[in-house]
Design a protein around this nucleic acid. Structure first.
Lengths: 279, 279
DNA sequence: TTTGGTATGGAATATTCATTCCCTTTCTGG
DNA sequence: CCAGAAAGGGAATGAATATTCCATACCAAA
């Protein structure tokens, strides 16, 4: 078990050192070497996996210039420089203790960050895979149709779902699609859809345990005959609309933090598909 | 050649196909080839980056056996097999655009929603995998240390990164960690960190093309000697802090929409790890 | 315009590395 | 135990690729 010293100098990779050097002499570099420097920073993967001539071709210089570039930066030759880029590409297996170990702190020490990372990483992957497996193309298409026809889109999702809703709002704004978030101001939720009707549509996000306020607002929307699309995790969820247009999303959780990877991908899809449909 | 009805999203990569084939004939493989099969599945990076003899050495077989192995699995030779492993290492940031542009409105019809979904799905997966591959555990640990010691956390990320910052803010609030978003009110950015100093810390998110305002604010933070941790996509990024404490994040992009899956997972990790560290 | 120095291009050379081939060893079935 | 086949080892071969070197183009100062 390696103890990480609290005040140790930050770990600096050869790759970082290279870029530091590069920045240092960038200004004094001749034309062709600048050209290469730009290419090399833009596509480090090409350097790692390519050959002298493949790089030369892509960067628009001669093979010899590539070697010169490497020597200018203090390497013995191209291969020497490439080694630095290859090393960066190697997968550093993030320390992966047993999940069991991860959940129980054996000696009162804080969990290693990489273990926590792995938890969130796996949760995100699980959520995405589950979504991919369960998503019904026809249902999705129908949802897009409904949302695309709306004059104004009302977005509802409180607590954990609020960040997802905000993200969707950002996307819709970029795509110039009229919309309105419900619940930005506590206590004013109903007012925000005072003018909503059958010509509009709403998207509701709610996962267990369903926030009571979300359920209330969902019912208010249905009472106003606003077409509702729901993203939720259960066929018996309280926010399934009358129309039956709901999308199944299961977010895995890690230590009580629920992933939102699947929701993010799905709302991105909806935003892009609506824009696409409208032309 | 196997026919896939849908080429917009291959159900499996060449790499997956390879492993499937390998599993299929694993039982009938002679001793040395089994030895190689084990090695190859255990360290795919070595295959991608190594040479015939380096692999032979590490797996304890003769170079010729490595070539035999490749041929047995249906490749023309070692190089052919290596190409599959190398391809897996590449971070694809542009592929999707072309892929979908090909399908884009061939006959004036809008793209099917499920095709769009697949694009976002793949982009999210790619981003997550790239993060897992490139994340340096020591660096992450050092970043957490810095952030955990801060009295107040300042969060900076404009435009595309704003939703991620808002999500992080939500998590920190839940965890009762003092923090402040920079840039909630346009024009008032500097005021929000008027009292920040060395006792605090800042987390900066910025990806290409780096928003000029983010760079300015980053520099202002550094000028105030606020310890800065950056999440960015390039060693030559303008928001790399003096301390060298930056975390590499590559978000794949689909039709101009950049994924944020990797960023989300990483900020979740940071939030949870800080809370864990503080106990 | 000339001159000295530097940058660049391109071809020749050296090296590394995958591939091939053949001989030896190890299995397998009679 | 033997014959035949399959597997494995290792060196020779040839192709791919990095490196070196030199002629030429460029540029700045005289």
């Amino acid at each position: 078990m390696t103890e990480f010293p609290e005040d140790a100098s930050p770990p600096q990779t050869d790759f970082d050192a290279f870029h530091q050097r590069l920045r240092g002499c960038y200004a004094d570099l001749p034309k062709r070497l600048v050209q290469l420097a730009d290419f090399v920073t833009a596509s480090p993967d090409e350097v790692a996996l390519g050959t002298v001539s493949s790089l030369a071709g892509q960067a628009g210089v001669q093979p010899s210039t590539v070697v010169r570039f490497a020597r200018t930066l203090g390497f013995a030759g191209f291969s020497d420089m490439q080694a630095v880029f290859r090393d960066r590409l190697r997968v550093r297996n993030v320390a992966y203790r047993d999940r069991v170990n991860a959940l129980h702190r054996v000696d009162g020490e804080p969990l290693e960050a990489s273990v926590i990372f792995n938890g969130f990483y796996e949760a995100a992957l699980d959520s995405l895979r589950a979504l991919q497996a369960h998503l019904l193309p026809d249902r999705l298409e129908a949802a897009v149709t409904t949302l695309a026809q709306a004059q104004c889109l009302y977005l509802l999702g409180l607590r954990r779902s609020m960040p997802v809703i905000r993200y969707l709002s950002y996307l819709l704004a970029k795509l110039d699609i009229r919309h309105q978030i419900i619940g930005l101001e506590t206590g004013m939720e109903e007012e925000s859809f005072a003018h909503a009707g059958a010509q509009d549509a709403a998207l509701v996000l709610s996962y267990t345990a369903y926030a009571p306020r979300t359920i209330e607002l969902f019912q208010a929307l249905e009472a106003r005959h606003v077409p509702v699309i729901s993203m939720t995790d259960n066929a018996a969820s309280p926010v399934i609309p009358q129309s039956g247009l709901w999308l199944e999303v299961h977010e895995a959780d890690f230590q009580g933090f629920r992933s939102n990877a699947a929701s993010m991908v799905l709302v991105s899809t909806l935003a892009a598909a609506i824009a696409e449909r409208r032309g």
